[in-house]
Design a binder for these strands. Structure first.
Lengths: 345, 345
DNA sequence: CTGAAAGCGCTTACAG
DNA sequence: CTGAAAGCGCTTACAG
């Protein structure tokens, strides 16, 4: 049950020191600040370390040094690749600076997210990357109290002074809605992720509303659902039975749009001839489906890379940086076409 | 730079003990084994904990107790969803047993994987989940020495006595090749992940060879590439310029197949009329592309769930379990059709 | 049921 | 350049 059941016990700093005939302080220095130790001593210690197969105990190290070179990230889901690409870049950049990234998932559950925050902090994370702003104030208070800096990613709210890197979800989605309107669509529906506790999703819906509002329109239907293909398909099926039938469906992301596309096909509807569809994120998926999705390109890798630099600076004592806004660009592809001339039945 | 720069210092067990007027031992018991403490005492301590906002320091706890209730998982990539679904189920099951999952990615680099293993062990992981068998023996030796149990997932090799849960990649892929042959294809090409250090990919290719061998055939071309859509597309383009042109392309997974599908479409080829295509994994992707992919269904969620149970048992001292084999099932969809009757040019 | 005290494996002023 | 020693924040036999 315990780690010491091993037949051959795990070597400690003390074992190394004894074997090399030096103090534990010297061994510690050999490992952490080798140039403060004279060559000959270092050689003895290195030899002892190797022959013993010694590796430092991290827990002890953390406790004594108060630094772990570990960064934690909590994402709402690992199930689809929304966050995967940005996270990969985040990890690479962190790794090149000597930090290790540990990731965990909250399954879109605020309770679990809070647990994960505590778990990561408790395990010595030097800093945290969190998705979006929306969470219990107690979590922010806890982090502050523990002096663990946190970076918000995938969102950008200039009015909130918290360090963040992301993009303007509202404006980006408004741009999509504008494009839909420009194609003559007037019966517009939305498939969104659940907006509660998900500020990105909420802002995207707001962006749509704002855009449509300029023409005195509003979304005729908004379905909130979970972020998976089947959910997107089911929502689409539902929408296509409404009267009048929407001529364009704006989806909260590419996964939902891909599901919607499948549902349309299964119902014998042609995209975009019968109904137009848009996504968000510009995942690989978007170019692989037929027709390819009109969607919003988000610079995920850049977000990960810059986010890593920001968080490292924070962890290393820099003043909290100002929020960084990244540009998004509309990708026009075949899934968005002109509105049918006749009113659909 | 240090965590103690905080203006209000972080409360410790000692602070709680002092405030509650008891010993640190009693506070510790209140937290870990509450029924060994009498009600009245417990109430005092609980109050002190709350008023101080105390949370235990994990590092210290680990060091003293030698248990972290943390499980580490290292996957080759977080970039696509191959592992995402299984991991999510793994995490859920772990969570329901009070364990926290921390995930990191090796980016398919054995060096990085080794670093991550050490990082996770050093951070006190009670157990590890690793993908596939193929890795330096030194890693296994290290884990054994540290008495950290490891479970291999996504692979199953009954001759290797290591605890594992997975499926027979070789047999599963042979089944796909059999299906391709049954459709009359004789000019068959393969797009695989790099097989070096990736036993799953290597076994899949072997499965294809074995199947074709029964008809005295062999793959006419095998392209090894990375696991992403663009790589799949590029490989497909290359293959479609060969003479004779393959009539069927077996892909190492759905991502590659989706890319291949896109490339075929871009070249004006119809699937499956001009060329058949198969995937592996049965990801959401497989049903979303047109035509839908014939692929091998892998019970990812089940693998994650059972794997969690196995690893928990190991961590809690059970004898190493025997490898578990999960069934895979062929999903026949539109991307695989009969071979064209005329020899392609 | 509770406490005093040793110990977990490191790091780091402080001396020399 | 190196060592003795205190300290990091907990847990857990051992007594009582």
């Amino acid at each position: 049950m315990t780690k010491t059941r091993s037949s051959r016990p795990i070597p400690t700093l003390d074992d190394v020191a004894r074997k090399a005939g030096v103090s534990t302080a010297t061994v510690s220095r050999c490992i952490n600040t080798p140039d403060r130790v004279v060559e000959a001593t270092r050689a003895k210690v290195t030899k002892a370390i190797e022959s013993l197969g010694y590796t430092p105990n991290f827990g002890a190290r953390v406790m004594a040094a108060k630094r772990t070179f570990t960064i934690g990230a909590i994402v709402p889901t690992m199930e689809n690749s929304i966050f995967a690409r940005g996270l990969q870049a985040f990890q690479e950049q962190l790794h090149s600076h000597g930090y290790t990234l540990l990731v965990s998932s909250s399954a879109y559950d605020p309770k679990i997210e809070e647990e994960q925050v505590r778990a990561l902090v408790a395990r010595g994370a030097d800093g945290l990357m969190l998705i979006g702003y929306d969470r219990d104030a107690a979590i922010y208070k806890y982090l502050e109290r523990q002096s663990v800096p946190a970076l918000i990613a995938w969102a950008y709210a200039p009015q909130t002074p918290r360090p963040a890197i992301g993009f303007d979800n509202r404006a980006a989605m408004a741009m999509i809605a504008d494009a839909v309107l420009a194609q003559g669509h007037r019966h517009i529906a939305v498939i969104s992720a659940h907006v509660k506790g998900n500020d990105r999703a909420a802002e995207r819906v707001e962006g749509i509303r704002a855009s449509l509002h300029t023409r005195d329109l509003q979304p005729e239907h908004i379905i909130e659902t979970s972020y998976d293909v089947d959910a997107g398909a089911q929502a689409m099926t539902e929408l296509m039975h409404k009267t009048p039938r929407p001529t364009a469906v704006i989806c909260g992301n590419d996964v939902l749009a891909a599901g919607a596309l499948r549902a349309a096909r299964d119902m014998g509807l042609e995209v975009p001839k019968d109904v137009s569809l848009t996504g968000f994120d510009d995942m690989d998926l978007a170019q692989v489906v037929t027709p390819a999705l009109t969607t919003m390109h988000v610079p995920h890798r850049e977000m990960g890379r810059i986010g890593a630099d920001m968080l490292i600076a924070m962890v290393e004592g820099a003043a909290p940086p100002a929020p960084v806004q990244l540009p998004t660009t509309l990708q026009r592809r075949a899934s968005l076409g002109p509105a049918p001339t006749r009113t659909p039945v």
